[in-house]
């Protein structure tokens, strides 16, 4: 009855976006879409968050910030990239300072395409993320068995990646934004290879 998926708290981070997706993320929380009926709360504290929503691409300045936010989130956690910028770099992809989508620095689980991603798609993405969040509880229990309950040191980066990349197979496509369809389809497959395949594009 007290499943953790009934209370997903999101942390919203704006990378180098055009602000369009941020406004849509906030729109989800307004009375019109009322994300709170799923128990979704927008928290500002990574230590209390379950789902990280990233909008906008990663540039050389915010890369360490995103990584730190991810590391500060307690397990189990899920990352959701909102908008094509966060998925692949999008319209800013070829800018000199852009490294790419959110998965250049942290493992991303759910990709929500769209420019800007619509609130319905975002909520859909979060709902999918919530299922994954529930599943990860088992993993977390196992992890606690190995590392102990209190684990103050930052988690080993490689270990984080391992867990992440393994699960990124569950990547979900939520909206058929036509222009981005091709990209988001190739995304899950190319994910294991990581950066290499992205550079080829």
């Amino acid at each position: 009855m007290f499943e953790i998926k009934r209370s997903p708290w999101v942390l919203h981070y704006d990378g180098s976006s055009c602000n369009g997706c941020d406004i849509e993320v906030l729109a989800c929380l307004t009375p019109v879409y009322d994300a709170e009926r799923f128990g979704i709360v927008n928290t500002g504290d990574p230590m209390q968050a379950d789902i990280l929503l990233i909008t906008g691409g990663i540039n050389s300045q915010n890369a360490p910030v995103v990584k730190q936010l991810y590391d500060q989130m307690p397990r189990p956690k899920v990352v959701c990239a909102i908008g094509v910028c966060a998925c692949t770099g999008g319209i800013f992809k070829d800018c000199y300072n852009i490294l790419g989508g959110a998965d250049t620095v942290i493992p991303v689980d759910i990709y929500v395409p769209g420019c800007a991603a619509r609130p319905q798609a975002i909520i859909d993405g979060i709902v999918k993320a919530v299922d994954l969040f529930e599943k990860r509880l088992e993993k977390h229990k196992e992890w606690v068995r190995i590392h102990g309950e209190v684990h103050d040191d930052p988690v080993d980066e490689n270990e984080v990646r391992e867990v992440g990349t393994e699960e990124t197979k569950t990547t979900t496509k939520t909206e058929t934004a036509k222009t981005e369809k091709a990209k988001s389809e190739t995304k899950p497959k190319s994910n294991k290879k990581g950066k290499k395949s992205r550079r080829k594009k």
Partner: peptide, 30 residues
């Protein structure tokens, strides 16, 4: 509060869901 803002709002037991989830998460303290 939700009804006052014309929303559906979370379920009545939401605070319990929240606390039970918070207790299941990894323990991090500053």
């Amino acid at each position: 509060s939700a009804r006052m803002q014309r929303r559906v709002g979370p379920p009545l037991l939401q605070p319990f869901y929240d606390v039970s989830k918070l207790l299941k998460k990894q323990v991090i303290s500053v």
